[in-house]
Simulated scan of single mutants.
Amino acid sequence: MDPDSAADVSRVPHGGDGDDGVVDFSANTNPRRPPGAAATYDAAFGPATRYPDDGYADYRAAAADYVDCDPGEVVPTAGGLAALRLAFGVTVAPGDSVLVPEPSFGEYDREIRLQGATPVAVAHDEILEADPAEYAAAVVCTPNNPTGEAADPEALRAYLADCRAADTALVVDEAFLDFTDRPSLAGEPGAVVARSLTKMFGLPGLRAGFAVATGGLGDRLDAARPTWGLSVPAAGVGAYCMRQSAFVEETKARVGAERARMRDRLEPEFEVYPSDAPFLLLGVDGDVDALLAHARERGFALRDARTFPTLDSHVRVAVRLPEENDALVEALSEFA
């Protein structure tokens, strides 16, 4: 991290509403958790009286199985954002430039600037066509947040080849990829994959994730990671959750069906963006502030997507449980 840049970088707005009186559609986390996760958390209390085993062998093995890579390529982190910070920390230096999609997750811009580097924005649907030469790194978010579309696997692999030829690291944020059937780039030379357990397993406060990279890039990631960077409960619950394949498949099926059902009911009153993620981006033909207030009065928190660059009349809504989705759609239809 560049000390001279830290004072000039501000915080980034995110979804998530702490008001227990509303149903939170502003954060894209699973409203359900794997059966047995709470018991696993409780069982970690005793072992938490000791330092974690810094090797995290069981967590690495579970993560490797989850994304189909070698356990030695997995670097445990306290969430997907910690994986991104680590990725930029070992690939980006002061004065560098980094390609980033726009609109997309706001933390890319912040983390790159904290390294003393400059983010260079490219339209999210054109990022795989951008020339990576002369950039220290390029970032792809798949599925992209907040628009929702996943990158075409063949196009993504072709772009990784371009990045390798240009000696440019490709940082791939796969925080929502486990809601799709698309393959991970984990284990591919030249790529740093960042994964989060927050979204699929509905545990944002646990702070569990990981990065994956090979060769010298993987060695640098592992050397730079904080010692004991993953708590005992996070490591235990994370490993347990990643082995719950039936839960993952049920969640993917539910989200896919509900997302399609919500789209059918929200169009044409709203512009609904194509999505492979557990959320929908809506273009609003009207007063966004009034819509947000209308939704909250009826017990729903939405994500004001105007905080994303290039979006000036949009909200993002999570895909939750069927009865919650029905109630939200009814409230939004009242406004439209």
Rank of each mutant, 00 (worst) to 15 (best):
P3M: 15
P3Y: 15
D4Y: 00
S5N: 02
A6R: 11
A7G: 13
D8N: 02
V9T: 03
S10Y: 03
R11H: 04
H14L: 07
D17W: 00
G18P: 07
D19N: 15
D19C: 10
G21P: 09
G21Y: 02
V23K: 09
S26E: 02
A27K: 12
R33L: 14
A37F: 12
A38E: 15
T40P: 00
Y41T: 01
A44D: 08
G46A: 15
G46N: 11
P47C: 03
P47N: 08
D54A: 13
G55D: 15
Y59N: 12
R60K: 15
A63R: 03
A63W: 10
A64V: 14
D65Q: 15
Y66A: 15
V67Q: 12
D68L: 09
P71K: 14
A78F: 01
G79L: 06
L81M: 11
L81R: 13
A82V: 01
A82C: 04
V90N: 07
V90Y: 04
S97Y: 03
L99D: 08
E102W: 09
P103Q: 13
F105V: 15
G106K: 10
E107V: 08
E107Y: 11
E107P: 00
D109H: 14
D109R: 13
E111A: 15
R113C: 05
R113D: 02
L114G: 00
G116W: 00
T118K: 12
A123E: 13
Y135I: 04
A138V: 08
A138W: 12
C141I: 11
T142K: 04
N145R: 02
P146S: 08
G148F: 08
E149D: 13
A151L: 05
R157H: 10
R157C: 09
R157V: 07
Y159Q: 06
A161K: 12
A161P: 01
C163V: 02
R164K: 11
T168F: 06
T168M: 04
A169G: 02
V171S: 01
V171H: 01
V172S: 13
A175V: 12
L177G: 05
L177I: 07
R182D: 11
R182A: 15
G187K: 11
P189A: 10
A191W: 06
M200L: 15
L203W: 09
P204L: 14
R207W: 06
R207Y: 06
A211G: 13
G218S: 03
G218N: 04
R220N: 04
A224T: 12
P226I: 02
W228I: 00
L230G: 11
S231M: 08
A235K: 01
G238H: 07
A239T: 06
E250L: 10
K252A: 06
A253N: 10
R259Y: 00
A260H: 04
M262N: 11
P268T: 01
F270A: 08
Y273D: 06
A277H: 09
P278N: 15
F279M: 06
V284M: 03
D285Q: 14
V288G: 07
H294T: 09
A295C: 09
R296D: 03
R296G: 10
R298E: 01
G299D: 01
F300L: 09
L302T: 12
D304K: 06
A305S: 14
T310M: 13
L311D: 06
A318I: 04
A318H: 11
A318P: 06
E324C: 08
D326M: 05
A327S: 11
A327Q: 07
V329K: 03
V329H: 03
V329C: 11
S333C: 14
